[in-house]
Design a protein around this nucleic acid. Sequence first.
RNA 1: GCUGAAGUGGUGGAAUUGGUAGACACGUUGGACUUAAAAUCCAAUGGCCAUUAUGGCCGUGCGGGUUCAAGUCCCGCCUUCAGUACCA
Length: 984
Amino acid sequence: MKYHFNEIEAKWQKYWAENQTFKAENYSDKPKYYVLDMFPYPSGAGLHVGHPLGYIASDIYARYKRHKGFNVLHPQGYDSFGLPAEQYAIQTGQHPAITTAENIKTYRRQLDQIGFSFDWSREVRTSDPSYYKWTQWIFIQLFNSWYNNNSDKAENISELIKIFEAEGNTNVNAECDDDVEVFTADEWNNYSSEKQQEILLKYRLTYLAETEVNWCPALGTVLANDEIVNGVSERGGHPVIKKKMTQWSMRISAYAERLLQGLETIDWTDSLKESQRNWIGKSVGASVTFNVKDYDAKIDVFTTRPDTIFGVSFMTLAPEHELVSKITTPEQKAEVDAYIKATAKRSERDRMADVKTISGVFTGAYAEHPFTKEPIPIWIGDYVLAGYGTGAVMSVPCGDQRDYDFAKHFNIPIPNIFEGVDISEEAFADKDNTVITNSDFLNGLKYKKAVKTAIYELEKLGQGEGKTNYRLRDAVFSRQRYWGEPFPVYYVNGMPQMIDAKHLPIELPEVEKYLPTETGEPPLGNATVWAWCTETNSVVDNDKIDNITVFPLELNTMPGWAGSSQYFNRYMDPQNDEEIFSQEAINYWQQVDLYIGGSEHATGHLLYSRFWQKFMFDLGLVPYDEFAKKLINQGMILGTSAFVYRWSSNAFEEPIFLSKSVYDKVILEEKPLGHSDKFSNIFKSLTPKQTMEGGEAFFVEDSETTEKNFTPIHADVSFINASDELDVEAFKNWREEYKNAKFIYEDDSTFKVKRDVEKMSKSKYNVVNPDQICIDYGADSLRLYEMFLGPLEQYKPWNTAGITGVHSFLKKLWKLYNDDNGLKVTDAAPTKDNLKTLHKTIKKVEEDIENFSFNTSVSTFMIACNELTVQKCTSKQILEPLLVLISPYAPHIAEELWNQLGHNKSISTADFPKFDESHLVESTKNYPISFNGKMRFTMELSLDLNKEEIEAAVLANEKTKEQLQGREPKKVIVVPGKIVNIVG
RNA sequence: GCUGAAGUGGUGGAAUUGGUAGACACGUUGGACUUAAAAUCCAAUGGCCAUUAUGGCCGUGCGGGUUCAAGUCCCGCCUUCAGUACCA
């Protein structure tokens, strides 16, 4: 019987689906284990071989845990809202829901053919109203919450209102907007309803506010900070500008400290935690208030170096700082205005690009030093960022390089306040070796003490206090797009109102066009049925808007990360229509035990999800304030591109391609191509583009052999075989223009390509589709090979050629169980060698899986299979447990052979084999005998021997004497069971 | 610049606490089978030198160090990749 992998795989995939083999129950006597993949965006291009890498790893782990007696939750779903479907809709008019559904179908087919053990009964799609109902629900909860710094958690807004009614806001210690005014209980109670709502918005965890946003004109939407990479949009690379807009924001900054501290409690990769720490950007220092001279204004700054307060020689405001227009003197006004105009024009990217250029303008105004009362000139400069701290800095040129450069550039004095430090060349930023001088009461103090003293003195003056600052900004939550969750929000007199949760979901309305309206409103502005009737509690025709009972609905939609910030909990109880999940379900599954996904989500999805989880924890909805106990980043699989060299001569009609070593030679020897006798036949057969006398001379002249005369061109990797040879005919037929191309071959008449590793992408023609791999080699081969490529976390190139290794392993494995006459497994008792092979395999595979070292397991299987083949093992007692070991990796072949062995239940229900040390106990050891640390020969010795006996045996050996050549060994190191080293 | 990860044959990679470097594969070469090819099987395969077998020297990015013994530990560099970037 042969190994017909296509039949076997189809058979078992069908079996698993029909029998719901991997359906997880929300109760069990078994311990629970939750394995989750970051869920995919179903793109139109489908999967390439890089995508399933993490899914295969998590699937192996999930299957392994089932064998180990766990009740495993291993769900999958789709992050199905998103830009590409919308862009496609704009171009074609096709409703994004339709394209999305089609793409999901493709994804599902591709995932199914790889044989994953997902519990598909729990599938969720973020674009499904029954799912986004709960996304909207969480939004309402956030709206109805504020962050109490005293209890250090989110609380219901009604508690805050009670406080306002009883005592105003003077004693409220909340995370809120900076510009909240102070009011008494009486004042509060006399405020109009609008005024009260306005104030409450400044406290809510999701709030509507005029904020400076990252506007991307090309995409027609705002972007969150994590959606901008190097000053351009992550998707599409479009420029981004700053713009003031009224937008929903999430008060994630309230959770900055807890998000930071929480990192200590979770088993995530260090690099990922470090990214989050940087993103949160905690810095400890002080806020200092400077009075502006001759003007009733104050400038607040944040500094990490209050100890250097006497080194301040100027102040710098961001050009966008609100005080700039107020304090600028008439004489300086023209210059200041021009500067502000110039900086506003520059995109974020430009500003980042030239960090070197120093620019700034004096405002004409002066601040007053809090201690010396000396005047300090106030400048503006774009090296101060409006979005960080207060948008103003106290500039201490002697202690900060940027301030130093700025001062040098504009000839501002640089007072030195550091004892024994030369600052003539650069600023001195070293805290540890700081001793302060020229600083009044700070003289002679070291950094730590000076900081404390400075803060103490500032507090006494009422002009400062210790403060901790975070780089983490509140996250903008509105997008001017169609294909996202609608907000459950309508507007009364311009104030946002939440729709009662019992009327959710608010479904996306139909629109004619997916573009913004002519008046610049988001696409939902095109909807004609998009108003909220407070009497019928339903979405009604826009014509009915009377602002008495029928009101306009919010036109923005939620961002991509809304739907992905809680899905891991929803999987626990995905069909529940009454609650986001039942308490039974969440208390049973608790949190994700293992989360596998890409590191690109470090500061987006993975931070927002932690934020929402902490919020839900505050509400008492979830038992843990971290959603994923352990997280592993899988590396990326790269493509191995193939290049052919095209001679860029325009002398001939036909393109000319050079095989790799021909090219190498031509470049190395700099021999004109046309001159070579070897190729003269080829050149004679070419059609010259223009007839000219002495055509031969033409190409000789034209064929300089520098690299620039040859263009490397991507050839589709499907034309390349394992030996890097090009299928020339396939290549010729690939493109019309190559039909008559000429090829200069290797000496052995093959045509070889150059290979290079690049990111897998359509445009590089190095994308490998898993469908074809499954057809040619089977899903089990694909799964094994993806693991065999190398460590999970590493970036590694794909090369289809190597898959024959794992494929022939599976064939060998099959032959261990079957020959031409069918099953050959017997009840024969296992030999000692058989048992040894089995048990060392059990040990290694178990250790490997626990350490997520899946690549080494595959080698271990190969070794076991080779050994058992040599041993001619047919013993069921060996071959049966071996199948269970392999089944997480290659589940189809394992199921088939398991079935052949007479089992009628899925192998996934089998127990993992128990490792028995006794089979590995050896009586002898082949000792490596080293001389001065270099291994010279080996010696078989009994393990019963003690140190002295081993030494004696080794020294008595002929070869030892030969090595020593009469020298007396100075020292003999014997490590029993390991090694012998002779020094001498 | 800062932070993180990594550098081992022609290639992917292995080497669990310092203890036989290169497991397992791919590729290559040679051979068997075949009319031929594919498939399969066998052998060799880090480099250099020697060859009559036994061998010898070098070798884990570079330079030092610790140690009986270093891919592994320590110090100083170089390179690559990723993230981040005027964060006061």
